[in-house]
Nucleic acid binder design. Sequence first.
DNA 1: TAGATTGTTAATCGATTAACAATC
DNA 2: TAGATTGTTAATCGATTAACAATC
Lengths: 229, 229
Amino acid sequence: MSPDESARSNPSARSPRIPGELTVDGKKIPKAVIKRLSLYARALQVFSANRIEKLSSQELGDALEVNPAQVRKDLAYFGQFGIPGFGYYVEELRSRIKEILGTDRLVRIALIGVGNLGQALLSYAAFRKEGFIFVAAFDTDNRKVGIERNDVPIMHCDEIGKKFRALAIDIAILAVPVSAAQEMTDVAVEAGITAILNFVPVRLKVPDHVKVHYVDLAIEIESLSYYLK
Amino acid sequence: MSPDESARSNPSARSPRIPGELTVDGKKIPKAVIKRLSLYARALQVFSANRIEKLSSQELGDALEVNPAQVRKDLAYFGQFGIPGFGYYVEELRSRIKEILGTDRLVRIALIGVGNLGQALLSYAAFRKEGFIFVAAFDTDNRKVGIERNDVPIMHCDEIGKKFRALAIDIAILAVPVSAAQEMTDVAVEAGITAILNFVPVRLKVPDHVKVHYVDLAIEIESLSYYLK
DNA sequence: TAGATTGTTAATCGATTAACAATC
DNA sequence: TAGATTGTTAATCGATTAACAATC
């Protein structure tokens, strides 16, 4: 079977075969589309909580400062979700987007590095509300190992190899010092991880099948500085 | 004098006149360029620390996974920094980029919201190393008001109006609950702030001259989820 | 039916990469 | 001089927006 034959009638079918390059039915999906999809899902949750049962691409776009054509185009990558002349059912659209994102279930997260930032992330209640759960944290400091933090057990980094598989970790969040970042990454990759959210200000070397997102707080502030008068 | 006449021979002159739209000598500067400039500055710092005195756009690009033509093009927005056939002097390029970014001096930051995330940011040593200093933090919880955290005094949010001006705050970091985000933003804007780094998952309404950068941790994780096999 | 809004194609806009003359 | 690498223009690539036939 050729890669193209993986196209199916199921409109939200995912067929990522070339590592790092995501396609649905042969179309490449820009990274920005995925980010907006996630924003749509959250906005729809709010509409739903406010007892709004239907809306148009215009209304959804207005809530997020996104062009309505953009909203429709983003959705079109994955199928048809609306009714011409009517709009979208809020709950249905929300749940189908969550399905596309793969967040229609609990996503299991491991934290590597229980410093200040790591601890803040552990205690960030919004994660749980949005369907993410910390199942384990790892640190090399023996004073931290063995205790719990926000109901999350802290284990030694030496156990990453064993525990990542046993606990079926989906995503690793990296919040260690620069000096430890690459080594911890290598261990996590060796343990089979395929997605890393990296807060460490260093470029990580990973195999093609591993996806890394970078959040760089200092760069965010520095680039804001440019816009000061 | 027409806006275009603000073009000067000084290549790094900044002339942002249309609020929110940044131009240098009439050219628009993409936001992505500013982010990369900040990455270049940090990488150059590392080269410098390793006693590397010169490099080419190829070498700088390699370190950051950026195309060398991209490096040169980014710099070209602001002037000429290299020597044909030779490359760039590391220290000179670094200091000129810092100048462009406006981070060749301490940038003064105020934190609004001293919850878990806020406290983590206060204790994030990397900020200080990169030239940012927290000069004040604000919270509405009277148990926190009056004490210090990482040498930063915590004041009541009612004082934002007065203190922002007195302390010459450059950038506000917003880390409050969703319910308080817009009100705190309004107060900060009223107090003259022009740059906000917002960690709260809500769209802020601000006047055109105020620049907001969004860091949305839940969206980062959710969009990573999409890339799981 | 008339009005509204989708899904989709075409047009526009912007950003990245390639190529190369200029030049150290 | 010969070799290397810049700065810059042209070509490519990708993403956003506009427009509109299809259709509920």
